[in-house]
Design a protein around this nucleic acid. Structure first.
Lengths: 336, 336
DNA sequence: TTGAAAGCGCTAACAC
DNA sequence: GTGTTAGCGCTTTCAA
């Protein structure tokens, strides 16, 4: 049944030969079918089917100069905050016929650089990265390739790349102010690793002013449910008193909540708990977690649109600030 | 504010000209530096740097016939079970110099087909899909392109594509058997949408035999924390009695747990709760969720390795069965 | 060790 | 409407 001698994939020429037309005609039925007579078109399509012909993406890319692939570099897929962002990004890129290649960096600038190089090698048209902390080699690579790059999760007006993100310092500030306004004075802060993580650093800096005036105790831990658990165990071991816990991410807040429950400490009666992120699960825990909502789905959409415009019209997008918003639920209470 | 110079990217010929060598020599310093004299190599490398030369991925692909890109089609990124799978997949593909393009299907075979076409268009070398329910158009496309495809999350020895996954029927069966062995007779089953979801269907079929002999009540809902919540609200409304709840995914189990807590129903004292999946958070909820562990990280690894071998040596991999394993934690108890 | 030249599969300009 | 043909940027013989 397979008449072709070679087992190789058919190409335009093969189709043209069998259909008795020129390669240009085959190309036309592929790209502008209206420019071909019905009769010819049908015959060519039949042959295309018969030979299982699939146009080569590489050959197409070499002519058009476009690969229609965008690369994204995120710290991890294991935190819902990033997978939600990617979900939105993928969705909105797909609307414009663009595909998304995902690579994870573990918050390590060297891995990021290496993966970025890999993405450049496969021909991505643009890159989306997280935060503004990158290695000099990364910056050099981006400069050499002149690839459009957008930094996300971090708003910074004067960064050399356009940013799409929120004001991390004010996000933590919003959470803290709410606790202070609710009468809390002794507050424990649970945050992720500071190293290489500018989002955490910025959130920390948002607390700096208050830290002097109030009694803030900091606990660094892994950003995971388990990390939250561990932090509370450490905290309890210090025997310090506290009436509220501020977590730099809802993943941590969930770990903290579960561990408090395990220790028979009632939230919010004995301890108030506030997070940052607002994960899909946060409204549904018991009690539902008070948090600072970070619009990551919107961020994915804005990043996608910015990239599309950049690619289409060569205009570097302006930095875009997304609002962080306090969502009061049931894990916090006012102190009398 | 920064307007980039409109210079086009340098190519091999530009480099060759400036370095005073032939394009072949430049190509050599790129691909087999040892075949070039030290002196020439250094000169060429200098020019490469100077001109910010980055080889074109498309041109390279057209010659080698390889794009080094693998496509993955998953229902959603919003469930940790899939993002964990993708994390592992990406990691192990990266080890072999392969990149991962991700596309989401919302469990809709038509969207899947469309996205698959998009992936083929950008030149993926192979595809990883979820489950074994696909549209005829999808199958046709795969047949035409002769692309290596692996189906995951579902083990099926006789499927026309190689599968890497677990036995979904036995996973639910393991959970049920545990509840039965613990003395539970009145069991509510909370599961995701049946339509287009063969994993859910298989898990349901695993319960079929028992369903006749025992009193199993089924509740279909969205696979989300909220879905779990809703299911419990519906369940309570029916006024039926039950001593245990079996959830087809840990996401549902978490929603169920939180809602039970909200309703002041104690787990496991009043109701036992078991899930399937074993998410990173499952050991840390309070009480920790008893579940059937599905090794999705391993699945990502195996899928990656299978693809690599398939690509390298043209050998279609054998179906691969991953074991599902009961993990008893604290959300279940034995009935006297 | 190097260079010349023939493609790889396709698109697009130009002719008929 | 259709065919011819010149590239796109690179790798890869084959000679020198």
């Amino acid at each position: 049944m397979e008449s072709r001698p070679k087992k190789k994939r058919a190409n335009l020429r093969d189709v043209a030969k069998v259909a008795g037309v020129s390669v240009a005609t085959v190309s036309r039925v592929l790209n502008s079918p209206k420019a071909v007579s019905e009769e010819t078109r049908l015959r060519v399509e039949e042959v295309i089917d018969m030979l299982h012909f699939v146009p080569s993406a590489a050959a197409r890319a070499i002519n058009s100069g476009r690969t229609r692939v965008i690369g994204a570099l995120v710290p991890t897929l294991d935190n819902a905050i990033f997978s939600r962002f990617l979900a939105a990004l993928e969705k909105h890129l797909a609307m414009h016929g663009l595909s998304l290649v995902v690579a994870t960096t573990s918050n390590d600038p060297e891995i990021e650089t290496e993966k970025a190089r890999g993405l450049v090698d496969i021909g991505v048209e643009a890159l989306i990265v997280s935060g503004i902390t990158h290695s000099p080699e990364f910056d050099k690579l981006m400069e050499q390739t002149r690839l459009p790059v957008i930094a996300t999760s971090y708003f910074e007006e004067n960064y050399h790349l356009p940013t799409v993100g929120y004001d991390n310092a004010s996000a933590s500030r919003i959470a803290l102010d709410f606790l202070l306004a609710s009468g809390h004075q002794k507050i424990a802060v649970v945050h992720g690793p500071v190293k290489n993580n500018d989002r955490t650093q910025a959130r920390l800096s948002g607390l700096k002013a208050a830290k002097l005036a109030h009694s803030l105790q900091m606990f660094e831990t892994d950003i995971s449910i388990q990390g939250g658990s561990t932090a509370i165990q450490n905290l309890l071991r210090t025997k310090t008193t506290f009436t509220a816990i501020l977590c730099f991410s809802d993943v941590l807040a969930m770990g903290v909540l579960f561990e408090l429950q395990r220790q028979q400490i009632n939230v919010p009666e004995e301890v108030s708990l506030i997070g940052i992120d607002d994960l899909p699960s946060s409204p549904y825990t018991f009690p539902a977690i008070t948090t600072v909502h970070l619009p990551v789905a919107r961020m994915g959409e804005v990043a996608a649109k910015s990239i599309v415009r950049w690619l289409d019209s060569q205009t570097v997008p302006d930095p875009y600030l997304l609002p962080a918003e306090l969502i009061v639920r049931h894990s916090t209470r006012k102190l009398e």
